[in-house]
Design a protein around this nucleic acid. Structure first.
Lengths: 227, 227
DNA sequence: ACCTGAACACCGTTCAAGT
DNA sequence: ACCTGAACACCGTTCAAGT
């Protein structure tokens, strides 16, 4: 995933919201793409992935479902924009260029993972659509930059990048899948409350595990470099 | 001639015990869960993840959509059964108990990954639903067994298992996401053919990368054991 | 036990029409 | 340029009814 995005010009490889030009406005419209994305994220946070419909997003904005099609070509665009939207914060502040490569990798990967798991629906969608939004690319590029900084053969770099990318996506996906299952299977109020309490514990455990698995992979990369 | 009269549908002139339909018909039902799963897999292979609807599966079997609900509670059940279905072959033959732990891990992980990427929709769904079918569990157990066989602290084992699981899921997910995007974005016949040709190349590259990334993770596990 | 058929409450998306 | 409103061709799922 990361390496695919690394290729110069590969951003345009796929047809997606990010590559299609946005229409320009003359007078102040009631809707904007930002407002639509914000409403989409709010709706997803409230109702989860299956709750996302054009009609509900429109209702959130006091508008007809068909109006959204002026700003977006299809439902999937909303998904892509929402996923990249929740990556914005993580992509805003990245480790500076003087950061040692291994800490740069770890910090960025952790932020990427944390953002994907902060909203249950994000990792869910990330599995079915490639992460090619600008924020996902910024995060990926920082990791790629760190690996390049570490040096070594190009082939080895490509493998390291893939290993990290798989780790982030795989960890986020399975963490969220387990969480969705757990919360979805209990309807009784007590159980929901109890699982909410244990959920924060579970989150801490999840994060700790991610850190350690990440360490393992980075060590694997280092072990190969020293050969 | 004797057998002709035995058939319920043959020319019967008289009303008799033999001509009257039997009360408790031991006729087997038109549908079975296996037939439904087979039809689901066939449909998914043909139309992809978004093509899966209860009505189409039913049509495939010459039956009404509502009939499926006798065998299955909801649409998601079909997804879960189909995903586990395509893992059956991989789970059937697992490395024997005398296999060295690292080759057992690699062989099993490779088979798991190969099965998930053999049908584009499988990894797509695997992202949104946990892999808890019997075949997925059998594959997972073999990897867990190998890690236990390798020894070391329990904590370290848990991390190794997660690293491998993330690797398989992450690699399968991103490989398929890229593939779906590529094929979905070209409608022209030439392009479809061209991308089908390059797809087999891409598959080989994909698999080679998976092997190398897997090696890296296993080396990371080994590096930790030797400390 | 197993399947049909009608019905309900939704979907995404198109397109002509309004402003 | 932007939004409405009607319309189309679908959905999953329920439930009573048939056999």
């Amino acid at each position: 995933m990361l390496s695919d995005m690394a290729e110069p010009g590969s951003d345009q490889q796929f047809d997606s919201v990010f590559s299609r030009p946005q229409r320009r406005r003359r007078t102040q419209p009631a809707l904007t793409r930002e407002r639509i994305v914000a409403a989409t994220i709010a709706l997803l946070d409230r109702e989860g992935a299956p709750g996302l419909t054009m009609r509900k997003v429109a209702a959130e904005l006091g508008v007809h479902a068909t109006s959204l099609y002026w700003y977006v070509e299809r439902r999937e665009d909303l998904v892509d924009l929402a996923v990249d939207g929740i990556l914005a914060e993580a992509a805003e502040v990245l480790p500076g260029p003087d950061t040692p490569w291994d800490t740069a990798v770890k910090v960025t990967a952790r932020r990427f993972y944390a953002a994907l798991t902060a909203h249950t629906w994000a990792a869910e969608f990330a599995g079915s659509r490639p992460l090619i939004g600008p924020n996902a690319i910024a995060l990926s590029r920082r990791i790629i930059g760190a690996i390049e900084q570490a040096g070594g053969e190009e082939e080895a770099q490509a493998i390291a990048i893939r290993a990290l990318s798989n780790q982030i996506l795989g960890a986020a996906t399975s963490a969220v899948a387990v969480r969705v299952m757990r919360t979805g299977s209990s309807d009784r109020h007590d159980e929901v409350v109890a699982s909410a309490v244990s959920a924060s514990d579970a989150l801490a455990v999840e994060n700790a595990y991610f850190d350690q698995v990440l360490d393992l992979v980075v060590e694997g990369i280092e072990a190969r470099r020293g050969r």
